[in-house]
Design a binder for these strands. Structure first.
Lengths: 160, 160
DNA sequence: CTGAATAGTTCAGCCAGCTAAAATGTATCT
DNA sequence: AGATACATTTTAGCTGGCTGAACTATTCAG
């Protein structure tokens, strides 16, 4: 099932995966002892690289005060660290680091091994097709997130 | 970038997509006015079909009291409804329904249209490859979620 | 050097959503 | 019928994480 090529097949393909991805993120998050906000912020830091607290506040939509607590928690969990900027010593740079907990590292290792098993079932040419689909889908999702955010608050474009 | 075929390529492909999926879910969730728990529960209901409150409690890991509140919120948002069981009138069946809000429906319509655009870029044979990859990846993720949950609480298998 | 602006932290208060336990309504067993 | 078990709801109380506002440290403009 779910391999038909009718209209909406693309959406259905994505939906299948989508739930599994979200549940996996959730499982990893609770394994790390992170709230949803923490996990999302960590994702932003990983994806966009080190940034100041102010920028992180803008990207997450949180107030400065909340960001302080957030970074405290990430730091305590060994998932990020604060670095004072040499140029402007008011400014922080918040850097995501690798998972400290052995449980988390083991979970990622298992995932990586399992995904290698999946990859092994495909030829190089097939993997290229998959990569193309993944990239196109990723782009679509990002655009849609953007779209949703801007329809909700067209004037409050915070940093993206 | 990210289209190389070295070791870990599968994991990297997945990671690209994973963030985008999570952010999209998040955007949809806040568009619906749902908490993370609500959204997760709704996903379970959609995926596994109607179920009793007790079973939903087991699947979400919540206490019965919390489930009452959760279903109240879903019902208020027009995303699920309670049905009294005719056989055993103590028992409820909780049924997920379609998104009530026009905003949400529009967002899904936009996504579907955009994904149709992606699908159009692939031949039927290529889509079959993608479908195979999606299914294999979905299976892997579900297994890993299971794995994580059971390593954390090997004795407390609640209903899965 | 002074005053204004900026980056981040601290503090007090608030709210959502959780748990635990008691209450309610229904089914089952004897 | 009476006692017991079960499914869900209600209630009380707690906690985490948020906001808004005051505060500290640093930079910049004049």
């Amino acid at each position: 099932m779910s391999t038909d090529a009718g209209p909406g097949a693309g959406a259905r393909l994505g939906a299948e995966l989508s739930d599994a991805v979200v549940l996996f993120h959730d499982a990893i998050g609770s394994l790390m002892g992170l709230s949803a906000t923490d996990h999302k912020a960590l994702g932003i830091l990983r994806r966009e690289g080190p940034m100041s607290a102010t920028r992180l506040a803008a990207r997450t939509g949180l107030t400065p005060g909340a960001v302080t607590g957030l970074v405290d928690r990430l730091e305590a969990a060994g998932l990020a660290r604060r670095e004072r900027d040499g140029d402007d010593r008011r400014r922080l740079t918040i850097v995501a680091t690798d998972p400290a907990s052995p449980d988390v590292a083991a979970a990622f290792a298992r995932l990586q091994r399992a995904m290698a098993g999946v990859t092994a079932q495909f030829s190089a040419g097939e993997l290229a097709v998959v990569a193309r689909w993944v990239e196109a889908t990723t782009t679509v999702l990002r655009e849609q997130v953007h779209e949703i955010a801007h329809r909700r608050a067209p004037e409050a474009r915070t940093g993206a």
